[in-house]
């Protein structure tokens, strides 16, 4: 029953988010600030993780290719498929659930604890729209982060495979182009958009409806990370089943 109540409350929150809109000029500034906080602030860690994950995938694949009948170019093929289909969109989103999700939950939760959300409501402002809508719009730029992640993941794989002496550059480029299906990119970006919405709204729900004090803000951040990850994984499974099977 608690879960059903929470799911209902989440959808009611979404209805409120798209209710009475905040003044345009104010909203514009809020969106730009959220892009800076949520997207720009995450680029560093995303770039770092993507590069090294790509490198590790390439090394692992190369070390497991003992059969001389299997072409060396498979290293690049495996790295490309892993990075585009799962590592960039899904793995990075789980990392973002920890970084961006916790930030959203704790910032909104702190506002709840210190009555700042009540202050917005008393002023006649739709607090759900003011606080959550700019985050959703800012997260629409999240696919750019994932595109960068894909590029750096493959660049990492190239560096590790070629500089590590597992394959030469031509073999890697050949493997990278081998049996490329453009729809896989479409699939990856469709789920990235869905993940962006989840990353903005599930942590916002946990922050907005939290009760208690500073300790509960910490608990809400942890719960938010767990549930955002669960929703991401379930959505990933559903989208993959729908689009690829």
């Amino acid at each position: 029953m608690t879960y059903l109540h929470s799911i209902g409350e989440y959808f009611l929150m979404l209805k409120g988010v798209f209710g009475r809109m905040t003044k345009g000029s104010v909203l514009k500034n809020l969106i730009l600030k959220e892009i800076d906080d949520l997207i720009m602030g995450s680029l560093g860690i995303v770039a770092f993780l993507s590069f090294f994950i790509g490198a590790v995938v390439a090394i692992q694949t190369a070390l497991n290719l003992n059969n001389p009948l299997i072409p060396k170019s498979l290293v690049a093929y495996a790295a490309r498929q892993s990075v585009i289909l799962e590592f960039a969109p899904t793995f990075i989103s789980i990392i973002m659930a920890g970084k961006v999700g916790s930030f959203i939950t704790s910032s909104i939760g702190s506002m709840r604890v210190t009555e700042q959300i009540d202050a917005l409501e008393v002023m006649g402002i739709n607090s759900k729209n003011y606080l959550i809508f700019p985050k959703i719009i800012a997260m629409l730029t999240y696919p750019f982060v994932i595109a960068i992640s894909m590029f750096l993941g493959i660049a990492g794989a190239y560096s590790a495979a070629v500089l590590g002496g597992f394959v030469n550059s031509d073999q890697f480029i050949s493997g990278l182009q081998d049996e490329f299906i453009p729809f896989h990119l479409t699939y990856a970006f469709i789920k990235t958009f869905l993940f962006a919405f989840i990353l903005a709204t599930v942590p916002a729900y946990h922050g907005y409806y939290m009760k208690g004090g500073a300790l509960e803000v910490g608990e809400a951040s942890t719960t938010s990370f767990v549930w955002t990850s669960v929703v991401l994984i379930i959505t990933n499974y559903a989208v993959t089943q729908l689009l690829l099977s």
């Binding site: 209710g19 009475r20 702190s110 210190t114 009555e115 700042q116 009540d118 202050a119 409501e121 008393v122 002023m123 006649g124 402002i125 739709n126």
Partner: peptide
């Protein structure tokens, strides 16, 4: 309705116990 209440609330001022300033 909620929207009509929000409209009237623009005529209200509130001093919260902790101030509730936007930090």
């Amino acid at each position: 309705s909620d929207e009509e209440q929000r409209e009237l609330r623009t005529e209200m001022g509130m001093l919260f116990q902790g101030g509730a300033l936007f930090d």
